[in-house]
Design a protein around this nucleic acid. Sequence first.
DNA 1: ACACTACTTTAGAATCATTATAAATTATAA
DNA 2: TTATAATTTATAATGATTCTAAAGTAGTGT
Lengths: 138, 138
Amino acid sequence: MRDNYYFIEKLRSLGLRPTKQRVRICKVLFDRNDTFHFTIYELANLLKLKSKEKISLATLYNTVHAFKKKGYLKEISINSDKSYFDTNISDHHHFFNESTNELIDLTDKDFDNIKLKKSLPGKKIKSLEILVKVANNN
Amino acid sequence: MRDNYYFIEKLRSLGLRPTKQRVRICKVLFDRNDTFHFTIYELANLLKLKSKEKISLATLYNTVHAFKKKGYLKEISINSDKSYFDTNISDHHHFFNESTNELIDLTDKDFDNIKLKKSLPGKKIKSLEILVKVANNN
DNA sequence: ACACTACTTTAGAATCATTATAAATTATAA
DNA sequence: TTATAATTTATAATGATTCTAAAGTAGTGT
Ligand SMILES: [Mn+2]
Ligand SMILES: [Mn+2]
Ligand SMILES: [Zn+2]
Ligand SMILES: [Zn+2]
């Protein structure tokens, strides 16, 4: 759906050099209709499928963290096993299926007005995340 | 405040043998007035301070996981760096101070009625956690 | 008290996600 | 084209957690 040019310009607009590795990663992550939730491991596997030209694992970590820093990806805190990332950078929450390790998006609309009444003096709120853990019945 | 006997009976009531390692761990974790949020690393350091008789790291992991399984501890999902545990097993949420890596309790009272409107067919909700990440100003 | 058994502890090794290193490569601007 | 900084890469290092298998211990029944 999106051509290389689109991602090259996107990367430039983020202040990141459009290397061929980054463009390939963008196509896997962002050239799709739906939100994509992934781990580095899953990303690595998808890239292997798409092309036989290897991208170093270090580059995957570097790139994903660069994208996160630029606000092009979000990181989701689920557990201490591994990090999950999310192409949906809007303010939203998740179902985490503990049986399959899959994430499903929720939005503010899926909750009654969530309003934090407390604040911490001298502290700035960086994020508010809701995570609903689910498991398959039996 | 609590003597060994209290924890010995508590352990028995959980179906866990009251070994001297477990009792010592209980005193560090539960013999206090306030909720205690900790990592295994912090627990290990506290135990070193209390006594020179070493408890194996494997025992700390075993014990903390056994306590969690019995509902005597909760695990808090913060990030993929390490696991956090919580002696407050009631339904509550957290401020996580990213500057100091400290957890502070919040309760339902600190939010307007949080109500999840969606459900997942065929899935059972295991938990709903809210984590508010904060950082020190500047 | 003794013996039996299942549970527990333990040191050390293994695993695995992630980060660090440092040299080679590449994108971009002069 | 050259210079510079950014990027990629293989590989090593780190660090939390889990595994292993042997030694120790608590509870039970005799
Ligand atoms: Mn876990
Ligand atoms: Mn992280
Ligand atoms: Zn999402
Ligand atoms: Zn708490």
